[in-house]
Design a binder for these strands. Structure first.
Length: 567
RNA sequence: CGGGGUGUAGCUCAGUUUGGUAGAGCGCUUGGUUCGGGACCAAGAGGUCGUAGGUUCAAAUCCUGUCACCCCGACCA
């Protein structure tokens, strides 16, 4: 493509509302433009990148047995009412009415539509398994869209759905997708981790997130280099120390004054003790019963784990009134004397603590020299949020913490939707069975944005070769006749060999061209200018590297093709 | 939804405190000089100051409503 004919509105200034690098660079490089909050135009360069990512996804999902379809973005309310999600989904679901006042919604996801499709036409075990997918625009009316393509309200998503006859077959489909995802993100040139994830409201009980590692990620993940285990910090299983006899208490319990000090930070500062030497007590209403959760002061109680461990349906923090009703004081709550009034559960790290501080359940007072076992009793679980310094629950090695951008998420769904929508089939024995499902999403635009977060420098984007808008930037310097002739020839030669070239044939100064091509970030830059051409050379530079190679003009096309093959 | 902030030229912003009829830089157009890392000179084009109403002789500026956008939080995946 000739640069002079392409719509690439670049900007020198950072747009004021772009917070993260990928958003800024996509705006500045003329790849996207905002239409409304969380809603964007994809301009030629940006759209090419999205298409590249989508192509890789299609190839790998097809390879894994998926079949591409396209479902509607506008969906009738009846489907959502049948699954129950019309009432559960909340304001993220954008609802609208047609001219007959019938209810519709913009699809935030397509479980209802595919499941109905399959239910209506799959009747026999012989027709299973089947995996259908699409690359579609989704709409979720997010409370706070931000970061450009990273978290839009309208966004392009690949979503796949597997239908299997039983659980083992469903797991097989799940694993095929897991492998496809590994291949997809590897091909996109990204550093990522597949991490154990919470299944959230979508249901089901087996789930992995694919997280691209980047400082600006909204998620925190713990990963173990020695056994490969990785999980969101909220789920990460933490190594539990051997159960041992609690050491003998070292001193008698003693009440100390902590006037006006309510928070862990205030109290530990006031008492001049480390945060690990005080108990943090957080009280929850767990299915209508009060529970005190304890952890050490420098840890945080993990509500996900608490809920899971207690097999609770509902969990929330106590209100001030409820805390008082339990005989506790906000800012001075503790387990001593709380037995019988509420269930006490503790993080493993609390076990065997024989000399810590704890709230005295009396305004302005704490206890010193509190010993677990003597001063209070508790059940023990893995109850805290993983943090730096924690060890892997699988193998005991140190966790590494990373920030991550969730670009993909796979779920084993079970029969949540197939049951609600009555998607069944007859097995060999003419017995009716419910289809086992899985669903698998990839944020296409978000993947492109994540690639930028991971690959950029002060001058702009450095695209991984596989998803760059063009493989080569061909920069022509000046309009000297020889230069124009050679550059034109090289351009058509490269095109003839199937190389994707952005040919900068504009009447611009060298500095402008170089700066814009650095910004746009194609992996290979070829420069043809009078200075080198006089000696028979062109120049080749990789965007990722600093050095410039001089290549004989006659060898140029082959040289560049080789370069692309090996990148 | 709670708190905070911003709406002035395509982009970044000044002008608002103290009311007097619209500015800068970048970008754009034209001419000239330049020409291998975002050039220089000159002349231009471009704005119902988000929007509706009010106060006033006079409103970008003061008041009220409203809309949009941004940030933090909560919420949600």
């Amino acid at each position: 493509m000739r640069h002079s004919q392409m719509f690439i509105p670049t900007m020198k200034d950072d747009p004021a509302d772009a917070q993260v690098i990928s958003h800024r660079l996509m705006m500045r490089a003329g790849m996207i433009r905002k239409v409304a909050a969380g809603i964007y135009n994809y301009l030629p360069l940006g759209w090419r990148v999205v298409q590249k990512v989508a192509t890789i996804i299609r190839e790998e999902i097809n390879r894994a047995g998926g079949q591409e379809i396209l479902m509607p973005m506008v969906q009738p309310a009846e489907l959502w009412q049948e699954s129950g999600r019309w009432y559960e989904y909340g304001p993220d679901l954008l609802r609208l009415k047609d001219r007959k006042q019938a209810d519709f919604c913009l699809g935030p996801t397509h479980e209802e539509v595919v499941t109905t499709l399959v239910r209506d036409h799959v009747k026999s075990y012989r027709q299973l398994p089947i995996t259908l997918y699409q690359v579609q625009t989704k709409f979720r009316d997010e409370i706070r869209p931000r970061f450009g393509l990273m978290r839009g309200r309208e966004f392009i998503m690949k979503d796949a759905y597997s239908f299997s006859r039983d659980v083992p077959a469903a797991y097989q489909a799940y694993e095929a997708m897991e492998e496809a995802y590994q291949r997809i993100f590897t091909r996109c040139g990204l550093k990522f981790r597949a991490v154990e994830a919470d299944t959230g409201s979508i249901g089901g009980n087996r789930s992995h997130e694919f997280q691209v590692l980047a400082e600006t990620g909204e998620d925190l993940i713990a990963s173990c280099d020695s056994c490969g285990y990785a999980a969101n910090v909220e789920l990460a299983r933490i190594f539990a120390p051997e159960k041992s006899e609690s050491p003998a208490p070292v001193a008698a319990r003693e009440k100390v004054a902590t006037p006006g000090k309510k928070t862990i930070a205030d109290i530990t500062q006031y008492l001049k003790i480390p945060e690990s030497k005080i108990l943090k007590a957080v009280m929850y209403m767990v299915d209508d019963k009060p529970v005190m959760a304890l952890c050490l002061g420098h840890h945080d109680v993990n509500e996900f784990k608490l809920k899971k461990v207690l097999e609770a349906k509902q969990i929330r923090m106590l209100t001030s009134a409820e805390i008082a009703a339990c005989g506790q004081i906000e800012g001075s709550s503790g387990p001593v004397g709380a037995e019988g009034k509420m269930r006490i559960v503790s993080d493993f790290a609390v076990r065997g603590q024989n000399d810590v501080f704890a709230g005295a359940s009396e305004d302005g007072f704490h206890f010193a020299h509190v010993a677990e076992g003597r001063d209070f009793k508790s059940e023990f679980f893995d109850l805290r949020v993983a943090k730096d310094g924690d060890r892997c629950g699988k193998c005991g090695s140190l966790f590494k913490l990373h920030r991550g951008i969730e670009v993909g998420h796979i779920f084993y769904l079970g029969t949540k939707y197939s049951k609600a929508l009555k998607a069944t089939f007859l097995d060999e024995n003419a017995k009716e069975q419910t289809i086992e499902m899985g669903c698998y999403g990839i944020g296409v635009g978000r993947t492109a944005a994540a690639a930028i977060e991971q690959n950029h420098d002060a001058n702009g984007i450095i695209w991984p070769a596989s998803i760059a808008p063009f493989q080569v930037s061909l920069v022509r310097l000046g309009d000297d006749e020889n230069v124009v002739q050679e550059a034109d020839r090289v351009y058509s030669d490269l095109l003839g060999h199937g190389v994707e070239v952005l040919y900068d044939d504009r009447d611009e100064r060298a500095g402008v061209k170089f700066a814009e091509h650095d910004l746009i970030g194609c992996p290979v830059r070829v420069t043809i200018g009078g200075r080198s051409l006089k000696e028979g050379f062109a120049e080749v530079k990789l965007r990722r590297e600093a050095d410039v190679k001089r290549v004989l003009i006659g060898d140029l096309v082959n040289y560049v093709r080789e370069l692309i093959l090996h990148s």
